[in-house]
Write a protein that binds this DNA or RNA. Structure first.
Lengths: 127, 127
DNA sequence: CTTCTATATTGACAAACTTCGATCTATCTG
DNA sequence: CAGATAGATCGAAGTTTGTCAATATAGAAG
């Protein structure tokens, strides 16, 4: 198929679909699985407590034990543990056990993925 | 109160609270309302469909009418309308009515807010 | 081995979310 | 004015989330 034929086909589709407003200039580019994975990352920080936890951990010079985190909130211990688990399952934080204590820390590479997507959105927006 | 007195008070608190692991090196810095607002922004893109919508709109050269968006998903019209409303209420997108059609577009300043927070997290992480 | 402590896990319940069909509203067209 | 159409809103049903009390588990200390 020549390039001219291809162009003609595309134009035809636009005409058929267009109801006077549609442009069809872009289509979904993220595979479903990728969109779901990225959405899970965003959803993980889409709760005030979890956002504060990530903010807190990102400012710790070193890893933080759970009791340090618990002290900052007026919530039960299982609830904090639950939020930590969600963040950990999303890959945004991780922990290490030393003795009786669990030390939590952020995973910079995951934050980087979010930053990268936001960056792409913002850059393209400038056009 | 002098600076020395303040330091002394902080040190005392550390000693009293510390159970062998706690360091108390940082505290929550985001006011509750601010954390809730930012969490709402993240939550808005914390859904695969809404993430795809923002990704789609960010790549449009111009504003997109709803039918353009609907065509990309295998979901009912009210469902798409619902997701658009959530994104709009979060401030991430906005729309403009022209005739019968609503044209949606992203609001770069809100994406900027998210990017700023992620940037702060990532920068501090380098320490 | 027994007890204590830090934190994870389980189970239950209320609140919030996602989706759809049905309906409403505003605008265009004849 | 009477359709027709784009897209918002409403109401309901099913699913997921957030929270806590109770319990389990693993390491530390005696």
């Amino acid at each position: 198929m020549t390039e001219q034929q291809l162009t003609a086909t595309i134009d035809l589709n636009v005409d058929v679909d267009a109801a006077g407003c549609c442009a069809l200039e872009a289509e979904l580019r993220l595979p479903d699985g990728e969109a779901a994975r990225l959405a899970d990352l965003f959803k993980a920080v889409g709760h005030p407590v979890r956002l504060q936890i990530v903010d807190l951990l990102s400012r710790y010079g070193r890893q933080a034990c759970v009791c340090d985190i618990e002290h900052q909130f007026d919530l039960s211990q299982p609830t904090i543990s639950h939020h930590l688990k969600i963040l950990r399952q999303a890959g945004l934080i991780d922990c290490e056990k030393r003795g009786v204590w669990y030390y939590y820390f952020v995973r910079p590479q995951m934050l980087g993925e979010l930053r990268q997507l936001l960056g792409a959105w913002s850059v393209l927006q400038v056009r």
